[in-house]
Simulated scan of single mutants.
Amino acid sequence: MNSAIANLFHAVMVRTNKTLFVWMLIMLVGLPACTSVNTFPMAARAGDTVSVMVGGSELARKETMSVTLTDATSQTWDLKSLGLVRSVFNLRTEGRAYGMHYSPYLDSYISWSAGHEPVQTVLVADLPVNVNPGMATLNVSLNATDNSSGIASPFSVKLEILAGAGSSDQFLHRNAGGGSAAADFSRFEPAPHAKIDFGNGTIIGAASLTISFNNAVLNGNDINVYVPESTVRGSFISPGAFGATQRMVYWHQDGLKLYIDVVAPQGIDARYLKLFIVHPRGLSASPSFSLVSASVYDTSGAAIALQPSLTYYSY
């Protein structure tokens, strides 16, 4: 690509970058757990911002990922050690999306088999300011055990480096006061949380949990409980009707303990029952979540010898 064409291409990209980035997000949520062949945009200047789909992982974070860039002269930069990895976050499909309900069975099931709800993991990074023009390769490793994309790490993503000096995109957006503000990617990333997991295979009819926490560190009013919902139907051989993964969840806290009750009259496979206890960042110490008691029942009301696990992620 000659310099005149490159400059024209970049001028167009600058004017349309925000729209294209939003369009990319729209496409991503319809294709959970994909791994890109190219970055977005596919061509950028040194110092510009690029994004890339890197699979589907609940555990992947910018602090744990390995990201390097090798340019046309075989020079390699470690983007994470240079502080150029700006964010790693997950996107989820809008609840009314056609693909949310009428995708092939494997598409709806694969993420749950990896231990998490369907998500699309996205990496946003700035390119080094002194990277050389020409074809380059972004090498990415999630360093996570729950990637549902089926693509092994590390994997490579292609991009073209254009001549000229670029700049980091702040993804400015208008606010109600008529001004503008930069995107705060940290708001897309997970809040500190505890995950309660019931394993897989066991059919659960109801569960009652009591979780203690350190109220000297965490105000109970700041606790919220997030419960992802599955739309998986039947099996690969016999899809069956929707509704097999329905459940009702009720919870409250009294300032000392958190109480969570789950009801699934038709029964729910434990793999589709995940509970997340979230709290604000910036606590003075760990909230010390502890599963004090857990009673689990089958659809007939008989007790099941099943002990859920509780894992805390400080983030």
Rank of each mutant, 00 (worst) to 15 (best):
A294P: 02
A285K: 04
Y250F: 06
S293W: 00
K274T: 12
S295D: 12
G267V: 00
V262L: 00
V249F: 01
V262D: 00
F276Q: 10
Q253G: 06
A294E: 01
V263C: 08
G267M: 01
G255R: 03
V278G: 10
G267K: 01
A264S: 14
G267S: 03
D298P: 05
S284C: 07
I260D: 02
P265T: 00
V292Q: 06
F276R: 13
V296I: 13
Y297P: 03
A294C: 04
F289E: 05
P287V: 12
P287E: 12
G282F: 01
D254G: 05
Y272C: 04
V263Q: 13
F276G: 06
S288M: 14
L258D: 09
L273G: 14
Q253R: 07
V263A: 11
L258N: 12
R247K: 15
P265D: 03
V249D: 01
Y259G: 07
W251F: 14
D298Q: 06
D254R: 03
P265S: 01
L258C: 13
V278K: 13
D298F: 06
G282Q: 01
W251E: 07
A294D: 02
L273K: 14
R271S: 10
M248A: 15
K257G: 07
W251P: 12
G267C: 02
G255L: 03
A270E: 08
F289P: 00
V262G: 00
S295M: 12
A270H: 06
Q253C: 12
V263M: 11
L275A: 03
D298N: 12
S290W: 06
Y250W: 02
L273Q: 14
Q253N: 15
V292G: 02
G267I: 00
L273N: 15
Y259K: 09
D269S: 09
P280C: 08
P280Y: 07
M248Q: 15
F289L: 08
A285R: 07
V278T: 13
S290I: 06
M248G: 15
M248D: 15
K274D: 13
H279V: 00
D254P: 04
V263I: 13
L258I: 09
A264T: 03
G255W: 04
A294G: 03
V249S: 01
G282H: 00
Y250M: 04
L283C: 10
K274P: 07
S295P: 02
H279K: 04
G282A: 02
L291R: 02
H279G: 04
I268E: 03
L258M: 12
K274R: 15
M248F: 15
P280K: 08
P287G: 09
Q266G: 09
P287Y: 06
V278N: 10
A294Q: 03
Q253Y: 05
Y272S: 04
D298G: 03
W251L: 06
R247S: 14
R247T: 12
S284K: 06
S288D: 15
S288P: 03
P287C: 10
H279Q: 06
H279N: 08
D261W: 10
H279T: 04
V296A: 05
L256F: 11
P280S: 09
Q246E: 11
G282V: 02
L275G: 01
A294V: 02
V292R: 02
I260C: 08
I268W: 01
D269F: 05
K274F: 13
S295A: 13
S288T: 14
G267F: 00
A270L: 03
